[in-house]
Amino acid sequence: MLTTTERVAIVLAGAVFAFGIAVTFAPIAITLMLSIFPLQAGTPDFHAGSFDAYWALGNERDLLEALVNSIVVGGAATVISAILAIVLALYVDSRRAIGRPFLEAVIYLPFIMPPIITGLALLLFLSATHVERSLITVVVGHVVLVEAVTYRLVSTRLGNLPLSLYEASADLGASSVQTFRHIVLPQLYAPLIVGMMLSFTISFDETLLTLFLAGANTTLPLTLLAMMRVGFSMDINALVVLVIATTILIACLAAAIFRKTAMRF
């Protein structure tokens, strides 16, 4: 039973919501538009629309190389951080764990601090240990950054598993290895997959930290940043549209998996 005041408030808040959606989605809308319609003196020519830019992507050698770099870095950072996260989460969850606050502080610190801090700390460390900057150092930086995400999801799920689950399994005669294999591990697939998807999308888009660590190498965001001053060509816009579409797809998948498994608990 809504009163008039409430109704007015909901309509106003709904208008703000619509405005928020409009401004946050405007960038992708503009990029999509500019990948189809060429600019004529600053105005999109709506009569000359075509998907040619998408077919011409194969010729953009530098851009494709940066894209491949980003995928390789993202993939490597995702896998390494996932392994680290699951080891750490299992350790912290075990009864014999020590130094839990220390470990969690170390895991969450790079995620809470602005990336500029993590970036310059790693840069100073690399320089002090005379390690050459490369895509490997970028991967290291990304691992440190995204590990917190997977760790958080996995450790939350582990913490939510009722103790009676372990006890019931032991009571029915399972060894601790069997309990882990058949009871605990299946519970961790979903948070692990969601965490890895999020990790990849974060790593793929990382700019502020990567700038410190890439050296002479480049990733897609760095290439785009360098091209920003001259403006994006239609080809770039086309590539960006494809990349964003893929990222959104991954995000939707992650959300769907998360929702499905969250229902079970």
Binding site: T24, I28, L34, L224, V243, T247, A251
Partner: peptide
């Protein structure tokens, strides 16, 4: 409303510039 977080930071920047 969360979805834009998954769109490229640099692209958002460029688009805002062009707006």
């Amino acid at each position: 409303i969360i979805l834009p977080l998954f769109m490229s930071y640099v692209v958002k920047l460029f688009a805002i510039r062009s707006i």
